[in-house]
Write a protein that binds this DNA or RNA. Sequence first.
DNA 1: TTGACAGGCAAGCACCCACTTGCGTATTTT
DNA 2: AAAATACGCAAGTGGGTGCTTGCCTGTCAA
Lengths: 94, 94
Amino acid sequence: MADVFRALDDETRRLILDELVARDGQTLFEICTVLTMRHGLGSTRQAISQHLAVLEGAGLVTTERRGRSKFHYFKSEPLAVISQRWLPARKDTP
Amino acid sequence: MADVFRALDDETRRLILDELVARDGQTLFEICTVLTMRHGLGSTRQAISQHLAVLEGAGLVTTERRGRSKFHYFKSEPLAVISQRWLPARKDTP
DNA sequence: TTGACAGGCAAGCACCCACTTGCGTATTTT
DNA sequence: AAAATACGCAAGTGGGTGCTTGCCTGTCAA
């Protein structure tokens, strides 16, 4: 729950989600390339790898390993929690 | 934009929003009292004050000063940005 | 097998953030 | 006027976070 908010509190991770939404199932190196090309990010591969681990820990990204490549897929389910925590008028106050 | 994500990346600030949703227009001292009573938070008044400043900077809270009291009101508009940034990925929505 | 490729693990560093502490300002009350 | 109330400002500190660096594991092609 708190992991989702923490995962979203980083511009690089938000850009990664943008890229996965634009093209799902990318590998780590593809994401690195696209981030440097289109957003001018000078981050190393390890930095992006750690960001992906945070996103996966928050449930916003799932991974699938095939051979020596690892594909990343965006999941939007955790975002629903954010939208529904404060938007509906909660009347269940004890 | 990034301020909204940062503001939400803190459990105390999320609890403050919960309290404002439950009862809007509370003062700083009321929020402090309610946080310690219902959530066992041992934070000082200044800590809560700084949290409210962050929430106000993100547009999630507006304030209104009357006399020596300052009332805080919850605003949900900035949350819409979060919900709509990564959701348009779906193509099967009419 | 050998080498290149894709990715993982772990320690260290620099920076930011939440929190405290102490003092100051404005407004009400007595 | 004096005290109490409600809040603001600013410097300092501790812990967490992003990033780098270096080395390692597993996979595929030549």
